[in-house]
């Protein structure tokens, strides 16, 4: 953890990825970051599908029942069930191959949910201007400086070191991207069991990172039709890149695009 006049910054390796915590308030307590780090490891111990000892693994095996699970596990599974219904099974945590060999895997929502909660922890400590990035899924609060918006680059699907687009977000906002890069993991279509191949990358912006994370996965599975689907979900917008390099977005997405040569 480093603290400078520009705020506090920390990178924690947890949940199989790197979580970057970037607090711009100059005097936020180091305890705030430590509380978030503790929370993230707790989430890992509870929800990981790479660890047979977690509640989720036990639930997937049928070793424990839903009633025996803790409240937070039930809350997450309820969110998964709501989104499964909303997406007509394009997002389905209850019938998807998990690394632990079961078919229960809420990971498509858990990371975003955990980071959303982590933002709340920082806010309870009085932090107002912050950005938490968990392996590409981002929760934003406030501003990076003054009233400036946070500038979030969306990774180019084919070029590791390039961004396809920059969006500006501020106050309470979440940005989640689902994509398949050159050798990265494929996203499974729960309806067929096969990898989803329609799109190269989908980014969802909205108020809640858990929901945005799951929606991005669902739209990736739906293909371009998912952009029409999200039109019916107030507050959430999406931007898709096809394998051919063409881009499409939902009607509300323009508000996040920086004014540049591509806007017209």
């Amino acid at each position: 953890m480093t603290t400078t006049s520009n705020g506090t910054h920390h990178v924690e390796h947890v949940m199989g990825t790197a979580v970057s915590i970037d607090i711009r308030d100059p005097h936020c307590s180091p305890d705030a970051v430590m509380d978030v780090v503790g929370w993230l490891h707790h989430v890992d111990r509870t929800f990981s599908t790479y660890d047979n000892a977690t509640q989720i693994s036990a639930l997937g095996r049928g070793d424990i029942t839903l009633a025996e699970a803790t409240d937070e596990v039930r809350d997450v599974l309820r969110m998964c069930e709501v989104i499964r219904t909303e997406t007509a099974d394009a997002f389905d945590a209850f019938d998807i191959p998990a690394p632990n060999g079961t078919r229960l895997d809420p990971s498509g929502l858990v990371k975003g949910w955990a980071i959303e909660q982590a933002s709340g922890i920082l806010e309870e400590h009085g932090c107002e201007n912050l950005c938490i990035n968990a392996g590409g899924d981002i929760a934003i609060r406030g501003h990076p400086l003054g009233m400036e918006p946070w500038r979030v680059g969306i990774r180019h699907p084919e070029m590791r070191d390039a961004v396809a687009l920059v969006v500006k977000v501020s106050e309470r906002c979440a940005v989640a991207t689902s994509a398949t890069y050159e050798r990265g993991p494929h996203i499974i279509d729960p309806r067929s069991g096969d990898p989803a191949l329609n799109l190269a990358s989908v980014t969802v912006i909205g108020p809640n990172l858990g929901i945005a994370d799951a929606y991005a996965t669902a739209i990736y599975v739906m293909g371009l039709g998912g952009l029409e689907w999200i039109e019916g979900h107030a507050g959430y917008d999406a931007y898709a890149i096809t394998h051919h390099g063409s881009t499409s977005w939902s009607s509300g997405f323009n508000q996040y695009r920086l004014c540049d040569k591509n806007d017209t």
Binding site: A18, G135, R151, V152, R155, V163, S178, T180, S201
Partner: peptide, 13 residues
Amino acid sequence: AQVDTISGATYTS
């Protein structure tokens, strides 16, 4: 691009 952060598919550690 002068970005503050990058959104993308989840990377491993």
